[in-house]
Amino acid sequence: MLDATAKPLVEIKHMCKWYGEFSALHDINLTVAEGERVVVCGPSGSGKSTMIRCINQLEAHQKGTILVDGVEVKPGMKNIELIRREVGMVFQSFNLFPHMTILDNLILGPMRNRGASKAEATELAMGYLERVHIAGQAGKYPPQLSGGQQQRVAIARALCMKPKIMLFDEPTSALDPEMIAGVLDVMIELAEEGMTMICVTHEMGFARKVADRVVFMDEGEIIEIAEPQEFFSNPQSDRAQLFLSQLLGH
């Protein structure tokens, strides 16, 4: 388990966000320490994705503060690229660049943002492709790969930036059932290597296995935060109980 002195990598304090008049996030408080694995769950529309997308400012929050590795992230800030390179993100729909080969997908970020040479970036990229078990596909184009392979490429692409933290936004939700295990295996390996992770997912098996804490959200608020053992066996709030019974009940 984590010791209390671990450095906080992400600190969210009193964050709020509205879409027009609709309150999407309300008074979010969450601190994620270095090396910690947090799983975020909750019914759809509860603001899970919006919350993690505020961390790298794909969505702008309107109130409260977000610190990433001690630096405050503000909407419309200059040099947001310096923060984004420390925050890897994996999307539900992969979002690989279809006009580039797998390898080119991976080396783009390091070359443009970290100023790596093509040779350096390629070496780095091949290493990560090896780790997600698809080094043999480096010369192919994304549409030639299966969904599971594409998602593993997307993970490798994020890792190529050598981020301090990885955000996963429902990484297995768009996959065929037989593809899910391969992606989860890569995520578990990553967790075991000590990567700091925030995962929005409905994969409760994954949560049980790797999560240090589970964050349950509903209607734009964090309802409870607990260790997985505690959360699954003895959820405190009615809403978490209802959510779990619906999720596990069928």
Partner: peptide, 24 residues
């Protein structure tokens, strides 16, 4: 999603446009 993925790996707006959006 292409914009978001490119922004997420730390590309500037100009780079997103040049490397990712305009070619497509």
């Amino acid at each position: 999603g292409q914009w978001e993925a490119a922004r997420a790996i730390g590309l500037s707006r100009t780079n997103v446009l040049r490397d990712v959006v305009l070619p497509q």
